[in-house]
Design a protein around this nucleic acid. Structure first.
Length: 469
RNA sequence: GGGGAAGUAGCUCAGAUGGUUAGAGCGCUGGUCUGUGGAACCAGAGGUCGUGGGUUCGACCCCCACCUUCCCUACCA
């Protein structure tokens, strides 16, 4: 049988796991420090739990099957719907505001391509039970912190608010379905102003309107409406500039009360400014709408400026009605999902082929009779928290064992043969240095071996860091 | 979902207008070298040429279908 893997699914080999774990560690650490609690839920849910708020397109992408007891089951599409279920189900046991993070695989029956898989891992974090945009801003701040800590250079968090867009649409007396208008606007950055304007006015019928809407009738904005709408989405700049231009556009002050959406935006901006984040990573983008139907207020996404072809590597927003599907209690929420696999692919750091150098020590099984020596040395190292591996056979030549150690990415080999044993020393071989490096191997007294290994590993780590630049 | 391109060794690819037994580089395995990894040299393994059908005396090459992958587009993480 040929070994095969499902389309849109992938394996992660050991050497590809290093960056993955680094990224997950950062996210887990940052969110935990802000008080978020871990949660885990099943990968399978009843179909009826999954269906509904996602939107027509998304519902079609749910993996589903009927089990042997005739239940209609689906694989989770994201982690947010399961969170809503959990929050509703345990609402009397949980403490609100409830902050939680969760990492897990999700499945979408979509057409796979570069940066998009059918099975992928999301890191998801949410705050449930709070209305205030202070919560929205906290999530954004956490994203900002996380990406900085991961060492990602060119990330940009785009932010907008759906209430503002809805307000604008009624303000301009536009009759078309708001979500449809959002989606057309959403591609402004990609295709430019002219095509978008034509599409809004129904001059250019996009065949792309296939599945998402029952109707693919042309849109009906007047030229004046389209222009005003596009002028509006053209508003950009730093937070102060955006605020000023919004006041101008609607002829209001920042204390305006007639439009909740607008006031929410002003409040969000003021909270954002209070966080002292570098604005080069943040962009209020009035064309951003996001595709999922359940978002009701703030929406945001993270893109990597130089890797925009991969799409967003994280996305989220406020969903005030999601929990109401399961419970009468009103539990608004805001959250974000980070696409771990896509992030790794976009960072292009999952280079296969060479194993990531490890902080690990290799002990050749050199002489059959010295097996107790090797075992003891390895045990001492592990006791000190150092990964130590003994070659699992004494039949291979020393050269062959060292070749293995080299290819497996060990920086150090600790060699003990008859000579070393007699002299009470250990021969330390630096496998990470260049071929013709001066001191490729050094001897350390058996009694000093722990300190010697530690300083050798330190030296290696320093070298590795300098390589990273 | 819509449009385009391509599938030959583990990887990157050669293979004139159809003609015996399908090649290279890298990688892999072994040896030169049972007390020292990367280099060099030598040898070896590895292919139903994506799959199935058709045209032909004869197909890796031409035709059709399917499968898979990649690019553009729509959408998402």
């Amino acid at each position: 049988m040929k070994p095969r893997i499902l389309k849109g699914f992938r394996d992660y080999l050991p050497m590809e796991m290093a960056t993955r774990e680094r990224i997950v560690d950062v996210l887990r650490d940052v969110f935990t420090k802000f008080g978020y609690l871990p949660l885990e839920t099943p990968a399978l849910e009843y179909e009826e739990t999954l269906f509904g708020e996602l939107g027509v397109d998304a519902n079609k992408q749910i993996y589903r099957f009927r089990d042997l007891e005739n239940n209609d089951i689906g694989l989770r599409f994201d982690l947010t719907v399961s969170l809503a279920r959990v929050v509703a189900q345990y609402r009397n046991e949980l403490v609100f505001p409830f902050r939680r993070w969760q990492i897990g695989k999700v499945w979408r029956y979509d057409k796979p391509k570069k940066g998009r898989l059918r099975e992928f891992t999301q890191f998801d974090a949410d705050i449930v039970g709070i209305d205030s945009v202070a919560a929205d801003v906290e999530i954004i701040e956490l994203l900002y912190d996380s990406f900085l800590r991961m060492g990602v250079e060119d990330f940009v968090i785009r932010i907008n608010n759906r209430k503002l867009l809805s307000f604008l649409i009624s303000f301009l007396e536009i009759k078309d379905e708001p979500i449809r208008v959002f989606r057309v606007l959403d591609k402004l950055e990609k295709v430019g102003r002219k095509p978008v304007k034509n599409e809004l006015m129904g001059l250019e019928k996009k065949q792309a309107f296939d599945s998402a809407f029952e109707t693919d009738a042309a849109m009906t904005l007047s030229e004046e409406q389209a222009d005003l709408l596009l002028d509006f989405t053209g508003i950009e700049g730093n937070f102060n500039a955006v605020e000023e231009m919004l006041c101008d556009y609607f002829s209001v002050g920042t204390d305006c009360t007639e439009c909740p959406g607008l006031r929410e935006v002003f409040e969000t901006l003021s909270f954002l400014r209070a966080r002292e984040m570098n604005e080069k990573h943040l962009k209020w983008d009035l064309s951003l709408a996001r595709g999922l139907d359940y978002y009701t207020g703030t929406v945001f996404e993270v893109i990597l400026a130089d890797k925009s072809a991969y799409g967003s590597v994280a996305g989220g927003g406020r969903y005030d009605n999601l929990v109401e599907r399961f419970s009468n209690s009103r539990l608004p929420g805001v959250g974000v999902a980070v696409g771990i696999d896509r992030l790794i692919m976009a960072l292009n750091s999952d280079k296969a082929g060479t194993p990531e150098p490890r902080d690990a020590v290799f002990i050749p099984f050199f002489e059959r009779d010295l097996v107790a020596q090797y075992a003891k040395l390895a045990a001492e190292l592990r006791e000190k928290g150092i990964v130590a591996e003994i070659y699992p056979s004494c039949d291979a030549s020393l050269g062959k064992q060292l070749k293995y150690a080299d290819r497996a990415g060990f920086p150090l080999a600790l060699i003990i043969g008859g000579n070393e044993l007699a002299r009470g020393i250990v021969n330390i071989k630096r496998l990470w240095t260049d071929f013709d490096a001066a001191d490729k191997e050094i001897d350390a007294a058996r009694g000093d071996i722990m300190d010697a290994v530690k300083s050798e590993l330190f030296r290696f780590r320093k070298f590795k860091d300098s390589q990273r630049q």
